[in-house]
Design a protein around this nucleic acid. Structure first.
Lengths: 178, 178
DNA sequence: CGAGGTGGTTCCGTTTCGGAACCACCTGCC
DNA sequence: GGCAGGTGGTTCCGAAACGGAACCACCTCG
């Protein structure tokens, strides 16, 4: 199947990946979060080719992750994160947590600290997986996968489509890979 | 620059992306977390081509994210998540949180619930960004970027290398893109 | 006017990818 | 033994994505 068809899957993991899941997009967003806003600055920081950068910026603007606008009186454009784009920060921080743990043998290279933390040596941003009911911290082994409130509507929508192939649509198992 | 050189950056975001940042790898891992372990099952679930699946599985095994082994007496191999691989779960859950919020107009398709939550209608897994010092929840706007304990060692290692290009190495700004 | 900066586009050789065919191996069955 | 059907793995080729350089239009400033 074509990669873009992953967007039709009733799955909130694969759908973002159709937009974000390539070599450069998350690297690009990292630099947006670092405060870079202009085309040339982003090109220099990421080192990606200009044509590819243009593609990615256009796609992110199209998905309202970035917003393009020209400051009044300025001779340049700026690409700024929208609220939707800002909401991607936990994804980058989750990657960073893992990278710090498993891919930083010389020690954590960059600290992401809590600006308003009043204690000496401000605390660091950490990503936690918690149950929204009992507030306990969780791991993958404790997660069960089940149908959500929007699944039926998704399946109905898929059934109403040209039915491009007879792929299975079952919700497979739970998250315990042990 | 070549994409693989991103692994040399003193950055715990880009380094994982060199392994995970392509079209299929995170989709593949999602199905591993769903309990799939065998080549053909993963090929059917992801719909990726067999040659690409082989490439990705080999890379993940090489990085000790998956472990390959044959159950005794079985005629097939299994790819299982290692602890290092299981630690990637928050990355997928962060993507899912965002996908549920911004790319699920018909409602959340899949619920990831807390198996051991004793309440009726078990709670769901949520990713939170918190300060590890004051334990307050945080957003991207409240994060400051600064040098970490491993940065000097990283820079020294880079300086000792053939110095392939005169790229800048500064730590650019903080995370407030407002 | 020309110099130098901005973001954007076009082009082409290279790399990666998708998909089908093919392979080696093992098991079970008659 | 011989064959069918399953496993994971590999090879091949046309298509798509990518990198990098050249080029463009526009603007500002001296």
């Amino acid at each position: 199947m074509r990669y873009e068809d992953l967007a039709d899957e009733p799955c909130s993991i694969t759908r973002p990946l159709v937009v974000l899941g390539d070599r450069w997009t998350l690297v690009l967003l990292k630099h947006c979060f670092a405060g870079l806003r202009r085309f040339n600055a982003l090109q220099a920081a990421t080192t990606m080719s200009r044509s590819r950068l243009q593609d990615r910026l256009d796609r992110l603007v199209e998905h309202e992750i970035l917003r393009r606008h020209r400051p009044e009186g300025a001779a340049w454009d700026e690409y700024r994160l929208t609220e939707k784009g800002m909401a991607l920060y936990p994804v980058l921080m989750a990657l960073r947590d893992w990278g710090d743990t498993y891919m930083a043998p010389l020690g954590q290279p960059i600290r992401y600290t809590h600006r308003t933390c009043t204690h000496a040596g401000p605390g660091e941003a950490r990503v936690q997986l918690r149950c929204d009911c009992c507030d306990e911290s969780m791991t993958a082994r404790e997660v069960t996968v089940e149908a959500g409130p929007g699944l039926d509507a998704e399946l109905a929508r898929l059934a109403g489509e040209p039915a491009q192939s007879g792929r299975s649509r079952q919700v497979s198992g739970d998250a315990d890979p042990g």
